[in-house]
Nucleic acid binder design. Structure first.
Lengths: 124, 124
DNA sequence: CTATATACTTTGCGATACAAAGTATCGGGA
DNA sequence: TCCCGATACTTTGTATCGCAAAGTATATAG
């Protein structure tokens, strides 16, 4: 029996790299723009400071979730970011877990207290 | 104009106290059991170690989201936890934001025609 | 040729998640 | 009676991390 089976609410699929307010916004933004987004765009879309954005992008890049292209436009630095294939894949996996969580909670909110025994927590 | 208006992906509603893997599991568990759950039950349901559970419960209690009742059963300590009213409300608020995030991302994922067969990530 | 704006990176720090160790009690054996 | 392991937590230590402030560099305007 796997650990998850006995711990239905552990949500192990919630990858720490992804499960972060700022980075969730970044990934969602990038998901909506497969062609890529510029540093300044992401900054605005996600309401991040320069420093935070830089840091989060570095984390996402090191994890292989986004591809960060640093180039120059004229003499100015211009950074473009896109989701990698695995990044997209892993984000979708994460979202599936998140969706399950929302469903679990919504279901719990909807109906009243089920007795413990029914869930098989106390043996059965 | 509020900050959120210009930063549609900032997801400011993602309360740090709630937005945490372990605590999400705890809150969902407690949502499903309004009558309360014992320390040992939560530990099992969420797959947490004693130390982590203790710590997370303390955080949730300090934030006023859960009510932790420490009593004795015989001479053994026995802790029971329940969601407070505000805890329930704040968790539901959080879930609403989370739902929006999942929808945003799903929509973004859907707009792009994926040649790969991985369709219909969400919903039915 | 200062001043301000854009485009980032680096640094410093306070907070925190997690694990390991600690405290205390109970229920068996030997 | 004296261990020994299990239950029920709490405390401590550490390593990480998010965030803000400061730093670097170039471009443009007055």
């Amino acid at each position: 029996m796997s650990k998850t089976d006995s711990a239905p609410f552990s949500y192990e699929g919630l990858d720490r790299v992804i499960h972060e307010k700022a980075r969730l916004g970044l990934l969602t933004s990038l998901m909506a723009h497969p062609k890529g987004l510029a540093f300044a765009d992401l900054k605005q879309l996600c309401g991040l400071t320069d420093g935070n954005l830089s840091r989060h992008l570095a984390v996402l890049q090191e994890a292989g979730l986004v591809d960060v292209t640093k180039g120059y436009e004229g003499n100015r630095p211009h950074t473009t970011c896109r989701l990698t294939k695995t990044g997209r894949r892993r984000f979708l996996d994460y979202l599936a877990v998140l969706e399950r969580l929302v469903r679990d909670a919504a279901k719990a909110a909807g109906r009243e207290a089920p007795p413990l025994g029914r869930l098989g927590i106390l043996s059965t």
